[in-house]
């Protein structure tokens, strides 16, 4: 690093030699995350929700589908139903616990799939450049032209309701933006001297992508993907709310919100509960994403 650049570098503190112990990038990211109280708290909340979802049959006090005409819309704190019941007299706590399964799944699974597919497309487009890039990116631009909500609704509308179909439509919705991020980061990395140097050693494209490109692209793509989890949760709930996602009587926060809607004046707390869950979960996902971004924002 030369004196010319040193001035700026010194000002940003990046040419200052740091820690004596060698630490890989992921190591230091993990260390930073572990010191961030907000991220820790949010992760704990999400983990608790996830655990509850996994062990739903064990934890849930009732059968989620068991209706009761007698205790419809029981208020919170009812002796038999801690959080009350819904419009068909099903235990709300149980429904929320089972709903966590679908809602969390719909938050994470489409993002995971879209990251894999979109990220790969992006890396291929970014690394190959030229005509390949143009074909991939212009195709993606077509999808990009529609607002994500509209796109999800349209695809689900065509495919019909159901978990699998929602998964497909949400995945398709998120592929374009993830491919874009993947492409732009890859294009940057590809032009770095270390990639040029790797090409000069006679390494194949695949070797270069595996050895040099992936390690630098995964971070930014992951940050972006994590910020989409909350969007996916809300979007999945939205689809269910519109009747395009999960089919009743399946428990899902969005569809619960939808079916409880008419009860908002009679039992407001009951109606709001699924909304609160959606809010808390997506909020936590967002805050974790922010934490991840800050933790990775190191000029190493």
């Amino acid at each position: 690093m030369n004196t010319p650049t040193s001035t700026q570098a010194a000002a940003s503190g990046s040419d200052i030699p740091r820690a004596r112990i060698s630490r890989s990038f992921w190591h230091s990211v993990a260390r930073r995350l572990s010191r961030d109280p907000v991220t820790i708290a949010c992760t704990t909340v999400l983990l608790v929700i996830a655990l509850v979802a996994v062990f739903a049959p064990v934890i849930a006090p009732y059968d989620p589908y068991k209706t009761s005409i007698l205790v419809r819309l029981a208020p919170m704190g009812h002796p038999d139903h801690l959080l009350g019941t819904d419009e068909l007299g099903r235990d709300l706590l149980t429904r929320l616990i089972y709903g966590a399964r679908t809602s969390l799944f719909m938050g994470f699974a489409p993002i995971l799939l879209a990251t894999l597919i979109g990220g790969t497309l992006g890396i291929v487009a970014g690394y190959a450049g030229g005509a390949t890039n143009m074909i991939i990116m212009r195709t993606i631009d077509v999808f990009y032209a529609f607002p994500s909500v509209l796109l999800a609704v349209a695809i689900s509308g065509v495919l019909g309701a159901g978990i699998f179909n929602s998964l497909v439509s949400l995945t398709l919705v998120f592929i374009p933006s993830l491919a874009r991020v993947g492409e732009s980061v890859t294009t940057q990395v590809r032009n770095q001297d270390f990639v040029v140097a790797a090409r000069a050693t006679g390494a194949s494209d695949w070797q270069i992508i595996r050895g040099h490109v992936l390690s630098n692209v995964v971070g930014p793509v992951m940050i972006y993907a994590s910020s989409l989890v909350s969007v996916a949760i809300v979007l999945a709930s939205g689809l269910s709310f519109l009747g395009l996602g999960i089919v009743p009587p399946e428990a899902e926060w969005g569809s619960m919100l939808s079916t409880l809607r008419p009860a908002i004046y009679i039992a407001p707390m009951n109606a709001i509960l699924p909304g609160i869950m959606i809010f808390v979960t997506s909020m936590c996902a967002n805050l974790i994403s922010d934490g991840l971004r800050t933790a990775m924002d190191v000029k190493v």
Binding site: M1, S22, S24, F25, G211, S215
Partner: peptide, 10 residues
């Protein structure tokens, strides 16, 4: 020298 080394590699 900086740009020509991959920051993620030892």
């Amino acid at each position: 020298s900086y740009a020509s080394l991959n920051p993620r590699l030892t």
